[in-house]
Design a protein around this nucleic acid. Structure first.
Length: 898
RNA sequence: GGGCGCUUAGCUCAGCGGUAGAGCGCCUCGUUUACACCGAGGAUGCCGGGGGUUCGAAUCCCUCAGCGCCCA
């Protein structure tokens, strides 16, 4: 016997282990079945499951289970990434807690610590994914730092270098002073901040008393100014172009240049140019051949090495001693000191409040610093071209479509990708340097030496590049590196390209775009055919979840309390295309009832001896009830398929919900009760047969989204051996004889019962009062139906009997119109005739309004001539129905008027 | 500044040319032998405003407003 209450905790773990042990998740490279491939977006190896993971992996698992049941050879490739910065940060903090600094212990030791940390915490997320029910092919699990994947990284780096698509360049990067590494544009978040606009007076050379006022949001960078730019058309400064100003504090002589970058409307109209500390200024500097001294070090502190030599004293303007005193000061402290000094020198014109976007490191949270350094770059623009084309031609399609615009906008304006990071945790760049500065890029040290010796002689000593690659560099190779590339494996042959990539819109640039570039370049084709983009999970108020806000919800806690299936079903129901998902504990609690409903329906079946029967043939059923529910099941299967094909998780979940609850439970089981309670015989046998068949269909239909409860019921009922539902074929519609007649018949019964219940409820008739139903104007078919369904109607409509009205209507009846017939409920003792009259008049008014609306339409000549004929015909039928209804209500009214 | 999305029942959201929907919530009734995480019934909408196209607009176009996001 099934327990009275559903307790997911009692079977989830056992079932998952059963599936996993039986190899149900495994891809079958040797099978002839058509593959279905999804690459997992690799979570951070040291991370833990958050609600966003629950969303994306529920969607992926649902798709995978569905396709697997359809007979596809499903590969859901698992794995994790090494998350360079994040992981290094965690381990550094851990060591700091023990009073250890990574620089003290050195690179090798530090990396050992990271591997230890990985060994310790690396299983967390994969364990949690198991709790979510994710049917990943675990034996194929990969890690971006695995030997194989590392080989792929080296291969790609070396190849791209040979092709000139990876190169070293000295240009401005986004420098994170906290982590002391370059980061990519994407890892920078601009935050709107309240700041100031400082107006500084730069004395014009040779014109005593004349100043050029520049406006800046970053006065501390003035130490590195090498020009002042004004707009070429700006009349105010025309005579100054080509002249020089004296840079305060340092005494440097810098030119006034004309450049369109300077906006006459902004600030003072003149802008200081600091090429080594601002991206725009860097461009101006290049255009005008300006010097580019750096004045900040890796910590973001003042650093004078590059300007020390040119400091000179200028009376009332520059004082080398002051500048030297700034050395080593943090950029923000230096700002204060410099502003104060300029004020003292009366070179500060004014300070205006000013809001500006300040770039912050997304991991470190500190303002990033543009810094001139030598880094490795990838020529993203060249790699992007075929990737853009692939989306333009539809080789890869985004779902929903509009996300393609986001992809295009970024890809068409893509900047060189800085791929080197000044970290220790990651793939060390395979580049070696000779003492003379020549660079040897090779897959191994031996190869690098071989090349170096050939070029520079036998006794050359090489030093390897200290830096590692951006984590996304290895993630970009994921769709093929996990399949064994650069080796030519059967997996690579069979599972590349993948079918669909599922991820949130925030990852389009970081990962999707880069996989598209690398996939195309190295595999000669797109890495996946479809990119399904879902929203992000937000709290019930639509706020982004964050630890600092304290509004995060823990998927594991939800699983503990409501079960994995409840969480998954909730997520699926709310996952509307491309929109963010507002999710709270309450939503999961509400949706939990669906699993309970299914459990109880199954329990009812069990109590009535409904059990799997392989000999049952749905195409041979005779009773309208069996035909009707099989037809409804066909419809549910079709809806589920269509929804899943279209990546509409919400539609799929809702179609299942409606069929199970409003079809199977509300009506089928109720209609089945008389037969189930009745004598053994053909009818009862067929009802039981169809019940077990449809319950089995429901379990299969729901399995992708609610894997646990469906497997538990499947096993307990004995539809198959333990843990076999996951491998059971997906249901397909069956040919149902006489479906249309069955639908007409059962729909009529439903309508009759619903109408009778409604009028009883409105007339406040207690359920305990049983009433005969008298049919007036009923066709012989209707009377026959009433006869066939008498037991169900009695039970569901609280009726004593159903028969044709003979002679005059009794006094005091409530009446409802059902198709051509009018149903009379003699309620002389309980009915309020006034209320009944009012009710009938209201009904009549409704049908009259309907008739009027349709009449207006039909009397419009344009409508008759221009609308589609079937629409016109439909409206004619509607009019006839409304008029007939009005007539029957009139008759009903006259019956109760004395 | 450029671009995108959203605005439909109290809440969360489907629908995207042909009779306004779902879930939850709310109100009334209910110990009918699966289920109160239940059953039956009910109420609730100028489909953001304005204009246009069309025989017909929540749905297509324009415009305005508000909210959100992305990129500068």
């Amino acid at each position: 016997m099934l327990d009275k209450t559903l307790s997911p905790a009692s079977f989830e773990q056992r079932i998952y282990e059963g599936w996993e042990a039986s190899g149900a998740f495994g891809a079958r490279p040797d099978s002839a079945a058509e593959p279905f491939t999804i690459m997992i977006p690799p979570p951070n190896v040291t991370g833990s499951l958050h609600i966003g993971h629950a969303l994306t992996f529920t969607i992926q698992d649902t798709l995978v289970r569905w396709r697997r049941m359809q007979g596809r050879d499903a590969l859901w490739q698992p794995g994790t990434d090494h998350a360079g910065i994040a992981t290094q940060m965690v381990v550094e903090r851990l060591l700091a807690g023990q009073g250890v600094n990574r620089r003290e212990i050195g690179r090798e030791k530090f990396v050992e610590h990271v591997w230890e940390w990985k060994a310790q915490s690396g299983g967390t997320i994969t364990r949690q994914l198991r709790r979510l029910g994710a049917s990943l092919d675990w034996p194929r699990e990969r890690f971006t730092m695995d030997a194989g994947l590392s080989e792929a990284v080296r291969e790609v780096f070396v190849t791209l270098h040979k092709q000139g698509l990876i190169y070293r360049d000295r240009r401005l990067v986004n420098w994170d002073p906290k982590f002391q590494t370059a980061i990519s544009d994407l890892e920078v978040e601009n935050k709107e901040m309240k700041g100031s606009l400082w107006h500084l007076r730069y004395p014009v050379e040779g014109e005593a008393g004349r100043f050029l006022v520049v406006a800046t949001t970053r006065p501390e960078t003035m130490l590195g100014d090498t020009a002042v730019a004004v707009h070429p058309d700006d009349e105010r400064f025309k005579d100054l172009v080509g002249k020089f100003v004296i840079l305060p504090l340092t005494g440097r002589r810098i030119p006034v240049v004309a450049d369109e970058y300077s906006d006459p409307e902004k600030g003072s109209g003149a802008v200081k140019i600091t090429p080594a500390h601002d991206f725009n200024d860097f461009a101006v500097g290049k255009r005008h051949g300006l010097g580019m001294p750096s004045i900040l070090d890796a910590d973001g502190a003042i650093w004078l090495d590059e300007i020390e030599g040119e400091l000179r004293e200028v009376d009332g303007v520059a004082e080398p001693g002051f500048v030297r005193g700034l050395a080593g000061q943090d950029r923000f402290a230096a700002r204060k000191a410099i502003v104060a000094e300029l004020e003292r020198l009366e070179l500060l014109e004014k300070i205006e409040p000013h809001n500006n976007a300040v770039p912050h490191g997304d991991r470190s949270g500190v303002p990033i610093e543009p810094r001139l350094t030598l880094q490795w770059y990838c020529d993203a623009a060249t790699l992007a071209k075929p990737a853009i084309e692939a989306v333009e031609t539809g080789a890869t399609e985004f779902v929903p479509k509009h996300f393609e615009n986001i992809f295009f906008s970024w890809m068409r304006d893509i900047q060189p990708w800085c791929v080197s990071r000044q970290l220790w945790w990651g793939h060390q760049i395979p580049a070696w340097y000779a003492p003379d500065g020549s660079v040897f890029v090779a897959k191994t040290e031996d190869e690098a030496y071989a090349e170096a010796r050939a070029k520079l002689g036998a006794d050359v000593t090489l030093t390897r590049d200290e830096d590692v690659l951006d984590t996304w560099f290895s993630s970009a190779l994921w769709p093929f590196s996990t399949l064994g590339w650069p080796q030519k494996t059967t997996e690579l042959e069979k599972y590349y390209p993948g079918d669909v990539l599922v991820t949130g819109w925030d990852i389009i640039f970081f990962w999707v775009a880069r996989m598209m570039m690398m996939g195309h370049h190295f595999m000669g084709g797109v890495p996946f055919k479809t990119v399904y983009i879902h929203g992000l999970v937000r709290d019930e108020k639509g706020q982004k979840m964050s630890k600092s806000k304290g509004n995060v919800i823990d998927p594991l806690e939800l699983i503990e309390n409501f079960g994995t299936d409840a969480l998954r079903f909730t997520i699926a129901s709310l996952a509307t295309p491309g929109r963010d998902v507002k999710l709270g504990r309450k939503r999961v609690e509400d949706f939990r009832s669906f699993g309970t409903k299914l459990w109880n329906a199954a329990r009812f079946c069990e109590m009535n001896g409904i059990a799997p029967d392989a000999s049952f043939d749905p195409t041979k059923v005779q009773t309208p009830l069996a035909r009707w529910i099989l037809d409804a099941a066909n419809n549910a299967i079709a809806e589920a398929d269509a929804a899943l094909e279209a990546y509409r998780m919400d539609d799929y979940a809702n179609a299942c919900y409606r069929f199970v609850w409003n079809g199977f439970c509300d009506w089928f089981l109720e209609f089945a009760k008389p037969a189930l309670n009745g004598p053994e015989g053909a009818e009862k046998a067929e009802v039981k047969g169809v019940a077990q068949h449809v319950l089995g269909t429901i379990l299969r239909l729901l399995h992708p989204v609610m894997p646990y409860i469906t497997e538990e019921l499947w096993d307990r009922f004995g539809y198959g051996p333990e843990f076999s539902l996951i491998r059971t074929p997906w249901p397909t519609p069956v040919a149902v004889p006489g479906a249309e007649d069955a639908r007409a018949e059962l729909d009529w019964v439903v309508k009759l019962v619903t109408e009778v219940r409604a009028v009883r409820s409105e007339m406040n008739v207690a359920p305990s009062v049983l009433v005969p139903l008298l049919l007036s104007g009923a066709s012989t078919e209707t009377l026959a139906r009433a006869g066939r369904w008498i037991d169900a109607i009695r039970r569901l409509g609280r009726a004593t009997e159903v028969r044709a009205l003979e002679g005059d209507a009794p006094k005091g009846v409530a009446q409802v119109v059902v198709d051509e017939a009018t149903v009379l409920l003699p309620l002389a003792d309980v009915i309020d005739l006034g209320a009944e009259r009012a009710r009938l008049l209201k009904e009549k008014a409704k049908s009259e309004v309907e008739a009027e609306k349709v009449t207006a339409k039909l009397s419009n000549q344009d409508f008759i001539s221009r609308a589609k004929p079937e629409v016109v015909e439909e409206n004619r039928e509607r009019l006839a129905a409304a008029q007939a209804e009005t007539a029957r209500l009139d008759a009903a009214l006259s019956r109760i008027s004395d």
